[in-house]
Design a protein around this nucleic acid. Structure first.
Lengths: 340, 340
DNA sequence: CGCCCGAAATGAAACGTGTCAACCCACATC
DNA sequence: GATGTGGGTTGACACGTTTCATTTCGGGCG
């Protein structure tokens, strides 16, 4: 109840508040005996520093914030873990906020963060195009790093994965397995990720027939089931022999619907997903998937942010792009044994 | 760059700082014309309130923290969503921290939170028994609500689910399906959840043979695969005809291993999981599972916290226990069609 | 003995708010 | 004209730190 301040510590240790502060901040100018007295007093009183007062004085916090698009998607929790590791390494704390794809929630969080004068913000924004709020932060001296978004802006750093390449990897693989009728399942195409992955697939197919499009309204498992139903209902001779999904959640839905309807995977239809979340390898038919370096993504984002925080003057904004990697499992390769 | 304070706003609007503060806090005593001038000045200068100063003055933050055990587990993100909804409703912000089952990380987060004088803490602690740090928070006037932990302590509220009942539901169901040789897969038993679920199953089996134990070292998919291998390798006449898993992740691992080894689910072996995470319904053989009211859990926790925050004097600590519910899908019932 | 030096400790100022008693002033009342 | 009245506004203080110029003090040196 009784909140104890530095003043009471000073009184109990029979020193001035300045000295207590010096002890707390590890300055050299305090004698060993005095330091001892102060530390004892702190322990006896159960004193805890008041962060608000520190921040007020310092003008800035020691914490960065991460605003995630959807923490229910395992992809983002992995990115988060990477960011936490890097931030921890740099001696700053991370607090996480979840926008849940709701622009108003995102807006509320950002307002709070600028009031808190956080050190910086990692964000996967809900709406990629309309980011006036982010510019507002930057104007107030709060660096922003975009995560999993190619940045159109030069006001900030960004980290992303080359999704066109990812689509191409999937396409090359499926062609190499002898597939010609290939479908793409995913949506909406307003998401850059979806459009890029589709473009990569199309490019890989070259002068062959373009992929059949099975559009979904979002990237959930339920949407994948709908897509799977649509595909399974096609007459066998028109049905694609392979499906590349914009996302592992979609792929899981497609897979489930195939199994339910007696379409064998990979014998009748091969499936390749995207993200390589943990549940991809754990599916009843282990899922081939284009792996994104999720933790590395988060780590790189946090490092860019720290760099900008520590050297605001010399800092040059950068846009880091990672290369994805195809992981082949049984869903697209009959001969493959389970490998995890 | 130039951080603008309430003083400059006051100067520009030709009023005193007190008046600006009154406008900001919506007091009635300020004339319409004056309010207008102040608001204009705020807009022109791009003024943003300094939260540190407000907190310092108020002595307390307007934010609660949630410290999750493992955000990579979909269970916790669902709980989080529930808590966010309730907190939002009560007009407080939520920030999320992830301990990742690391006691040191948890400790660091809690230290930070007490320095920040947060309004309250929702936490699923790493170690249920050793919670001196939590008592420390409570002593400093920061209410703590335990999530998904039956509380042994009377110093705080808690919300949990009746896991013994959950185990019993699963056991009754499997017996009703005519199973007699039933196994329990999960561990470690030091987790109350695991022990309770096992106890419920055992109780449901009554005077029949007790469940065969397949112990795992943790609750991940990989651990489930090991358990599944162990079960599949048993001679068919000794093999259990049903497996109740401590967790959906375990269940997914068991399921995968069964399918790989040609053991048909549910024909040869029935499976029931626990939690009913989204991926349970999406498994290639949709998984029966004991559903916990995850969002409701989070909501209740946040409500208890708000109650304690708003009425510290009259507040009585409570321990809310929810009833789980069995969701039957194909993995334990051959006749069931997929229902989501 | 006087002087100076450096190490150690001090105390006041400042950070940006919210609060609240005091004040101002126009107007109504007697 | 003196006295209220009450809506609007003010200004000083307090919150808990950190910082830094200043003070104190013991002792070495000339």
């Amino acid at each position: 109840m009784a909140t104890v301040s530095i003043k009471e510590v000073a009184h109990r240790a029979r020193v001035s508040v300045g000295t207590v502060s010096n002890v707390l901040n590890g300055r050299a100018t305090v004698a060993a005996a005095t330091r001892r007295r102060v530390l004892d007093a702190i322990a006896e009183l159960g004193y805890v520093r008041n962060d608000s007062a520190r921040q007020l004085r310092a003008g800035r916090s020691r914490t960065v914030a991460m605003v995630a698009l959807d923490l229910a998607n395992p992809f983002f929790t992995d990115v988060m873990r990477g960011a936490e590791i890097a931030a921890e390494h740099g001696g700053v704390n991370v607090m996480v906020f979840n926008s849940g794809e709701d622009p108003r929630r995102e807006r509320r969080h950002l307002d709070l963060l600028s009031q808190q004068r956080v050190l910086g913000v990692l964000i996967t924004p809900v709406d990629e195009t309309h980011d006036a709020h982010l510019d507002g932060l930057v104007e107030r001296g709060i660096p922003v790093v975009l995560v999993d978004r190619g940045s159109s802006s030069f006001h900030r750093c960004s980290v992303a994965v080359d999704d066109v390449l990812g689509g191409r990897l999937a396409g090359d693989h499926l062609r190499g397995q002898g597939h010609h009728r290939i479908a793409f399942a995913g949506g909406p195409f307003s998401l850059r990720q979806v459009a890029d992955r589709h473009a990569g697939l199309t490019a890989a197919l070259g002068d062959g027939p373009p992929p059949r499009l099975v559009t979904t309204s979002n990237l959930s498992v339920a949407a994948g089931r709908n897509a799977g139903r649509e595909i399974a209902d096609l007459p066998a001779d028109a049905r694609p022999t392979a499906v590349f999904c914009a996302n592992d959640l979609i792929a899981l839905g497609v897979l489930q619907e195939m199994t339910t309807r007696g379409v064998r995977v990979p014998h009748d239809v091969a499936i390749v997903g995207y993200d390589d979340i943990e549940f991809a390898a754990a599916a009843a038919v282990p899922l081939s998937s284009v792996r994104q370096p999720r933790e590395q993504l988060g780590r790189a984002a946090a490092q860019l942010l720290l760099e900008e925080v520590n050297e605001p003057d010399t800092h040059q904004h950068r846009h880091v792009v990672f290369r994805p990697e195809l992981v082949v499992r049984r869903s697209s390769s009959p001969s493959t044994r389970t490998t995890t």
